[in-house]
Amino acid sequence: MKHRVTLRIGPATFRIGSAWSGPIGELRRLYADYPAPSDGSADFTVRLEPAGLLRRWLRPSIFITGDHGLADAAPMSLAHSLLAAEMGMNLQMALGWRRHLLLHASSVEKDGRVLLMSGESGSGKSTLAAQLGERGWRLMGDEFALIDLAAGAVLPFPRLVSLKNRAIDVIAADVPAARMGPLLEGTAKGDIRHMRPRADAVARMDEGAPPALLLFPRFGHASAIRPMGQGETFMRLTQASTNYVALGEAAFAALGRFVDEVPAMAMDFPSGDEAIAMVERLWEERA
């Protein structure tokens, strides 16, 4: 590939290659503060290639490939190249990571303990984590939480936060422009804008902490909190993990321990401000 950059996010290193300079330049800018990889090796390769012979110049379209790929992935517009790079990195983690139990959850840390939030796309877990990250919590990740298989600690994976549609203006009001990526309009997921986590969250990206509380947030409903039984929590987390089956017995032990030790609740909320207040109350009660 003509243009390349190597990025380290938490324990994972990605080599990203592109036929175009634009996406690599944007990645270099947004990941400028991230610690450099310790050597030249990378866990995963992501390639952004022209979708067809002439597609590098003519209505350029990107096709994402790498160590792990999806056969039916649709080509994307070059204007959405940053999203393509982020999706490529997510895909490699989701399909290939084996060193930790990977949960589809956001995570934030306070007082040396971690709050995890799991849910489908649109549940509000990513926006809520981003908001808490600007209000005294350390943002550990908006998409994947990595659970140490032996010790049970949560490890950070503080990639760029992917903000969608209404969440963009909410977060942009709190965050300096230098930490925001370009507005990507009309993607398959609507409008998307990326945000770089605060410098302290990036600097501490090798620092894990034990989990203390698990929430299943749901945006757009009247405020309600419901304690969740361990059976339901276990089932939901096996569905939220992309590598539970691949890790076998180690994942069974790690997830069983997690569910046994960490209280879980379903949290419905009507607005971001209300959600933040609910989280802070729950955190104080837990303490």
Partner: peptide, 22 residues
Amino acid sequence: ILFRTLGDIGLLYHRPSGQTHI
């Protein structure tokens, strides 16, 4: 088979198949 109790459910991990049964 590994067995673990979580609240009112039981978890069984079947080593030969790698399957988890709730």
